[in-house]
């Protein structure tokens, strides 16, 4: 049998393997993005950037609560102008490695999303990820744009008008019908969908002081605890739309990645696993994935994609 081919196509861009560094993890500098690429990621996502600099929430912002992480970092970022410099630097470092760059953006208004997208496009990333689903920041309607199909569609349309780059829209699991949101953003020109952002928000209380530990009191829940929910969301979304899906949520090993692909994902996001296994997690999962394919006689990722849909 020939060696399995781990590469996947994503909106016309070839990823050497399906593992993508998820936004918000280690994506703060060009050097860190380069390091993750060298650690074996198929693509890397920069930390979500907004129109202007943001300090984020005070600490504690991230906790390992026992079965995953909970975070309320609060979209700390250097603002779009500085982000363009970081993205240009990152792009130059990633190009020789053949690892595509996904620039993640957010804004407080529909118009703002278009403006930030236009700005970061100056750095020529391979994709723009539209983060409409951060649970720790309130948008102009007092809730994440991902909570409502019309809001999600409006943001997608604004970014679509602003840039010609492939657009990935990142969805929230905290909705009754994620497939409906996915259809709405696909209808406005999303080229791919990332699902899911963190679950919740959740809360962890210190019983000695009687106080919530996170300074923001609540935060988004990630890690192994949310994986079954992420898998179900990816399953629902990939059955509802024709565009590719990046499946994200609690993947920490090769078998988890296979599960995401069988749910319908084209690529697989890796986030909290960096806490459990370090930046080396990318090469580790890639090799576990390769081992699974060899054992089960798969020569191509696409042979596993959406297998669960036939059930």
């Amino acid at each position: 049998m020939t060696a399995p081919d781990l590469s996947v196509p994503l909106c016309g861009v070839r990823l050497g393997n399906p593992l993508v560094l998820a936004s918000g993890i280690l994506g703060t500098s060009a050097e860190l993005l380069e390091r993750v690429a060298r650690c074996g990621a198929g693509a890397v996502t920069s930390k979500s950037c907004g129109p202007t600099p943001r300090a984020g929430h005070p600490n504690p912002t991230v906790l390992a609560w026992g079965h995953g992480l909970i975070n309320a970092v609060g979209l700390s970022n250097p603002g779009a102008d500085e982000e363009v410099r970081i993205l240009r630097d990152a792009k130059a470092r990633l190009a020789p490695l053949g690892v595509p760059l996904i620039a993640s953006i957010f804004a407080e208004t529909v118009q703002g999303f278009g403006d930030v997208a236009r700005k970061v496009a100056e750095a020529a990333p391979d994709f723009i990820e539209v983060n409409i689903s951060c649970p720790n920041v309130e948008a102009e309607f007092g809730r994440p744009f991902a909570a409502d199909a019309r809001d999600a569609a409006a943001v997608t349309a604004a970014v679509r008008r602003a840039v010609s780059l492939p657009i990935i829209v990142k969805l929230s699991p905290n909705v009754p019908d994620i497939a409906a949101i996915a259809r709405a953003v696909e209808g406005e020109g999303a080229d791919a969908i990332a699902a899911i952002n963190t679950l919740g928000p959740g809360m962890v209380i210190d019983t000695d002081s009687g106080k919530p530990i996170l300074a923001n009191r609540t935060g988004g829940v990630s890690g192994p605890a949310i994986r079954p929910i992420a898998v179900r969301c990816v399953y629902d979304v990939s059955r509802a739309v024709r565009v590719p899906v990046i499946g994200i949520g609690g993947v920490t090993c090769g078998r988890d990645a296979v599960e995401m692909i069988m749910a319908g994902a084209t690529a697989v996001g890796i986030g909290s696993a960096v806490y459990y296994r370090g930046p080396e997690v990318f090469a580790a999962i890639r090799e576990e994935l390769r081992g699974f394919m060899e054992t089960h006689g798969y020569s191509d990722i696409s042979q596993m994609r959406g297998l669960a849909h036939d059930a």
């Binding site: 280690l26 500098s29 912002t61 991230v62 970092v73 960096v274 930046p279």
Partner: peptide
């Protein structure tokens, strides 16, 4: 530092 856990990149 924010997380202290090697994930946030601060």
């Amino acid at each position: 530092m924010k997380c202290g856990l090697g994930v946030c990149g601060s």
